[in-house]
């Protein structure tokens, strides 16, 4: 089966600025892929070329095996995008907006799907309102409904939770998880790395137009972070000598070990007795730590 998204040596230049610089990665069908990077890293430029708002300078983008430059109407039919910025539709109410948007994708009678989405996203009772009458959160949900009216196989979420309160963010992520269960492949960008860590099967970290790292979320965290082990002992012990020791103060000792190393291994190395341990605290590395390490390594 073809990859849901296959990006090969993609370059996007704006005059002298190289927004996307030789980026290659793929997104497998049914996975949630997080594209992470600081502001101005090139995420939106990359997404713009995927959805053909921008033409690539060189390289190729394929969606389920079809090149977006060769058959854009086919790839667009398979793709839904939730843009970063709110779109205002002046004259029309929500139901009209979704009806027209369905039509642009070749679907004339789409009331069932439109009403399903309106119910699902809590917009049904607001369906006769115009965009300017909606709250910020409702406007975001409308963007999601628009992206899903044609039931795309690939959904691109470009910072869908920017400026959204915690409750709505939570419900949006739950919806994203449901969509994935129904077989939709998801490419998302977000600045909320804790949420990306929970949601994404794989992530790619982009910085200054270049893809610095790509891989399964857990593996990336393991590769770029360490575990902090804090022990409180029942009695003051003599001076410990271990290469992972970071701090020792009377009966309190701290270690920083590789993410792949087991605590048992550390205890065996230090020859500490389990019966002497009063308290043990393990701080695992996070995606945010890995993200900082990856970006720190290139600056």
């Amino acid at each position: 089966m073809a990859d849901a998204l296959e990006i090969l040596n993609l370059v996007k230049k704006y005059d002298s600025l190289i927004a996307v610089n030789d980026v290659t990665f793929n997104v497998k069908p049914g996975e949630i892929f997080g594209l992470l990077g600081p502001n101005g890293a090139g995420k939106t430029s990359l997404i713009s070329t995927i959805v053909t708002v921008e033409k690539p300078t060189s390289g190729s983008v394929k969606i389920f095996g079809t090149d977006v430059s060769v058959q854009p109407r086919v790839t667009k039919s398979m793709t839904g995008i939730v843009p970063q910025e709110i779109v205002n539709h002046g004259f029309f109410n929500i139901e009209e907006i979704l009806t027209f948007h369905s039509g642009y994708f070749g679907i004339r009678n789409n009331k069932t799907q439109i009403h399903f989405l309106l119910h699902k996203l809590g917009l049904f009772e607001h369906r006769h309102k115009r965009v300017k009458q909606l709250s910020g959160g409702m406007k975001r949900r409308l963007l999601i409904a628009k992206a899903l009216v044609h039931q795309p196989k690939l959904l691109i979420l470009d910072e869908p939770t920017a400026g959204v309160d915690i409750e709505l963010r939570q419900s949006l992520w739950e919806f994203v998880t449901e969509l994935r269960k129904s077989g939709v492949t998801i490419l998302l960008t977000t600045h909320y790395l804790e949420e990306a860590e929970q949601l994404c099967d794989r992530v790619g970290i982009i910085h200054q137009g270049r893809l610095r790292r790509v891989g399964p979320t857990k593996e990336l965290i393991d590769e770029f972070t360490q575990r902090n082990i804090n022990l409180v002992l029942s009695k003051t012990t003599g001076s410990l000598t271990n290469k992972y020791l970071t701090h020792q103060d009377q009966n309190k000792v701290s270690f920083q070990i590789p993410s792949t190393m087991k605590v048992g291994e550390l205890l065996a190395q230090t020859q500490l007795n389990v019966s002497d341990i009063v308290d043990l605290q393990i701080n695992e590395g996070s995606l945010e730590d890995a993200f900082r390490r990856v970006l720190g390594g290139v600056e």
Binding site: V51, T52, V53, R73, K76, V87, H89, Y104, F105
Partner: peptide, 9 residues
């Protein structure tokens, strides 16, 4: 809204 036309078929 013009980008809506561009991202649709």
């Amino acid at each position: 809204e013009l980008e809506d036309y561009k991202i649709s078929p």
